[in-house]
Amino acid sequence: MNTTGKISIISEKQRVLYTLLFIGTLVLYFFSLYQLKLEFKGGWENVLKALSFAKRMLLHMDLSDWKDVLTAAMESISIAVLATIISATLAFFVSFAAASNVSLRVVSNLCKAVAAVVRAVPTLIWTLIFVAYLGLGPFPGVLGLFFHSFAYLVKAFSQSIEEVKEGNIEALKATGASWVQTMAKGVYPPITTAVISWTALRFEFNLGMSSILGFVGAGGIGMELSNTMRIFDFEKAGFVVLIIFLMSFSVEMLFHKLKLNVDKCIVKDSSNS
């Protein structure tokens, strides 16, 4: 093939950008890997050990505690559902105050700054703080999940509100509609789908989170997993892991069937989580 006749698929500027990104990533990667100074003590022996544990977990699964495990699973699911409902409801109202196009600039900036700080601290750390204050149990778990979800959804919802066309709002204002009327008829209808998708996305995340809250003592199925693993009861742990998998998997399948395309929201907006 004649090279002079080649048509570049990407622009020169992009080519430079990608090359820089690629080289930067490689340098960063090997530097990090070097700095971590990983040790592989045991090497293959550990892999064989892991396989024998996996065999015990999967092939000799112990279902005798099914009642306790399922109760704990119900508790996890409840924590996730409850935290999602409360945070979505509150975030829905607060997001109108946080959206720059329908709210005062000061209020909007303040809401966004607080939300950004709350979001920057991982959910499990919030839970840990609540556990430290309130003691063990599902209650601090709900609060910890709620705290982070609320900040996350305020940001997500207010971003959707900011995408509402200025014309919608202006047209309603011109008819003499009050602020509440403008929000209800001009802003709420176009964002409904986005609100549902974001809430669904957050629910998936919260469900995953609720199954590990137990590691820090905040109730749910995580407690069962860490208890069984602590005494190396792999047969019982296998069943707990299976239930954790099924919880998350069934929700993923359900949302897939309902065509709540939750992943799409992530790439669409340039920043999130």
């Binding site: 971590l36 990983l38 040790e39 592989f40 003590k41 045991g42 550990n46 892999v47 050990k49 892991a50 544990f53 977990m57 499990l124 995953g208 989170m209 199954s211 590990i212 590691f215 995580g222 997993l225 860490s226 693993m229 190396f232 792999f234 742990a237 892991v241 954790i244 998998f245 998350s248 998997f249 993923e252």
Partner: peptide, 23 residues
């Protein structure tokens, strides 16, 4: 569908506590 934290707990008995397991 099994959270990373749960994977850590599952892998710790075989590989021991440390960065390797977390990674």
């Amino acid at each position: 569908n099994i959270p990373a934290l749960a994977w850590t707990i599952i892998l710790v008995p075989a590989f021991g506590i440390g960065k390797t397991v977390g990674l």
